[in-house]
């Protein structure tokens, strides 16, 4: 059953510089649907509008045309049914780990006792027990993003939106965090949409990969990923994995061909 349906969505940004009005077509006629419990990854080079698409799903911006339906209802703004993990974690620096994880719950009016319990659960889930009273500045980038994950999971959304969550991390941490996300996601298997430009990350995490082309962003190709779960790091050395990686690279290249380079 489809949770999220995107129908013919386009997005045009208008920027004014003095008298010069410039229009940027970020997305053109994007349609796709995501099924319940599916881990979907959108991959594309930078500037293909994938982050814009995610912001529209989150409800922070509205499409210029077309519509996005969540469980059949059009999205008009952010809602408790979606939880977002941001690229740079974007924790609130004046809040401790616990208070950061509780933030979304506070906004939903969840009582203090339940907030405490849920925060504890998810902090434990992302492996940060013992760090509850630390401030973000005391944590490494990887640990900060674990808090970011816990914060999004804590509101127990029907859909998880991840905006290049590991893009700012170093290569090793990134691999570790991908494994962690696979493990944590595996617990509840709520619907997830992740955006990345990292082919290997997409393959490792996704049930389905949507390859987007550049300027304006369009859906270029949709690839099903057959690997069984739970996935472990040895999957990365699987010949099929390598083959698909190559295919995706081809798809990405043709998506950007003639425009970038």
């Amino acid at each position: 059953m489809s949770v999220l349906t995107i129908e013919n969505v386009s997005k045009t940004f208008t920027t004014k510089r003095g008298r010069v009005v410039q229009e940027t077509h970020a997305l053109a006629d994007v349609s796709l649907s995501i099924d319940e419990g599916e881990f979907c990854v959108i991959i594309g080079a930078s500037g293909c509008g994938k982050s814009t698409l995610l912001r529209m799903i989150d409800g922070l911006t509205a499409p210029s045309s077309g519509q996005i339906l969540l469980k059949g209802r059009p999205i008009t703004g952010p809602g408790p049914d979606r939880g977002v993990v941001f690229q740079h974690a974007h924790l609130l620096p004046w809040r401790t780990v616990r208070k950061n994880v509780e933030f979304g719950l506070e906004c939903l009016g969840v009582g203090q006792r339940e907030r405490r319990e849920r925060a504890a659960t998810y902090i434990d889930m992302v492996g940060l027990s013992g760090f509850e009273d630390h401030y973000p500045a005391q944590l490494s980038g990887g640990m900060q993003q674990r808090v970011g994950l816990a914060r999004a999971f804590a509101v127990e959304p029907e859909m998880l939106l991840l905006d290049e969550p590991f893009g700012a991390l170093d290569a090793q941490t990134k691999l570790v965090m991908q494994g962690e996300l696979e493990r944590i996601w595996g617990v509840r298997r709520s619907t997830a949409l992740l955006i990345t430009h990292d082919i290997e990350e997409a393959l490792f995490l996704a049930d389905r990969i949507i390859v987007m082309s550049n300027r304006p962003g369009r859906v270029a190709q949709i690839v099903d990923v057959p690997f069984a779960r739970p996935r472990r790091d040895d999957l990365r050395s699987d010949p099929e994995f390598a083959k698909m990686k190559f295919q995706l690279w081809d798809a990405l290249k043709s998506g950007t061909a003639g425009r970038a380079a």
Binding site: L60, G77, P78, H90, L92, C107
Partner: peptide, 20 residues
């Protein structure tokens, strides 16, 4: 970005100012 965080987590206008 922090304002986006607040909005994404459904902060009311009041909460957005008070907490973010």
């Amino acid at each position: 970005a922090l304002i986006d965080v607040g909005k994404s987590f459904n902060a009311s206008k009041f909460d957005l100012y008070r907490k973010v």
